[in-house]
């Protein structure tokens, strides 16, 4: 499941979509990290609520969300199979050597709720922010240019390379190649090598063309930052929400 990096119109017009990315990124990231720090069971309903409310501000459909939640991660499944049986002392139910333990079960509950709440926030964030906006926001919070430039350039070529790879595999298939035994590793390595060589060759041409248009001469200025009061109000809401959750977790 690959997103085309395209923001739909309702999402772009939504509250989150219109929120200045340079304030949205810190605001939502703060909440995401706050979620990651929560351990108290009693706070879990609030995480779900906050995530759901945030998602409702995104203008994205429920279908969009469900489509992305279908793959809950192999890791989570593995943990669901291990934790309740291995971790803790309080045995709830036993069948031979298998014992369902309370502590493990509760830990699993916390992990699952946190995982999905964070996922919902991430989907809301990326569903309403384009990658160029994201890069500007990252630059504004002092992420080094090396990372942001690399991010934008990589993004620029990624879809092209994915379709190149796809065409190479089709061409190989037409010559009888099937990835159905370990022997396939050699042609697959050749395909990868070919892709690396042609990417390199293309990068030389890209660089020459960019240099001719003055790349690297000056530091590119950030677009003018012109937030409206609503941008700050939203940020304040998210800071307050995060602060309350942290306060509850660590002090009360």
């Amino acid at each position: 499941m690959i997103d085309k990096g395209y923001i739909n119109k309702t999402a772009a017009q939504s509250i989150l979509g219109r929120w200045e990315a340079r304030l949205k990124l810190p605001g939502l990231m703060l909440l995401i990290f706050t979620f990651a720090f929560i351990r108290d069971l009693r706070l879990l309903p609030f995480l779900v609520l906050a995530a759901a409310l945030t998602y409702s501000f995104s203008g994205l459909s429920l279908k969009h969300l469900i489509k992305r939640m279908r793959m809950p991660g192999f890791f989570l499944v593995a943990i669901a199979l291990i934790l309740p049986f291995w971790s803790g002392q309080t045995i709830l139910w036993q069948l031979g050597p298998l014992a369902l333990r309370l502590e493990g079960l509760l830990a699993l509950l916390v992990i699952t709720v946190k995982f999905f709440s964070i996922l919902i926030l991430v989907i809301a964030l990326f569903g309403t922010t384009t990658l160029p906006q994201m890069a500007i926001a990252l630059r504004a919070i002092r992420i080094p240019w090396l990372i942001t430039d690399l991010l934008l350039f990589t993004y620029r070529y990624i879809y092209q390379l994915l379709s190149d790879l796809n065409r190479m595999r089709i061409a190989a298939r037409l010559r009888g190649f099937r990835a159905n035994s370990f022997n396939a590793i050699k042609p697959l390595a050749f395909i990868t090598g070919t892709m690396l060589v042609s990417s390199h060759n293309q990068s030389e041409r890209v660089f020459q063309a960019m240099t001719l248009r003055g790349y690297g001469n000056t530091k590119q200025p950030l677009p003018i930052f012109s937030p409206i009061p609503a941008d700050f109000i939203l940020l304040a809401v998210y800071i307050l929400l995060s602060a309350l959750l942290i306060l509850f977790q660590f002090i009360i």
Binding site: D164, A171, L174, R178, F190, G193, T194
Partner: peptide
Amino acid sequence: FNPQVGMIFQHTADQLIS
């Protein structure tokens, strides 16, 4: 796979991998 049908791609870069 049908070796009796051969296709040469528009971009040879797609086809030459070895």
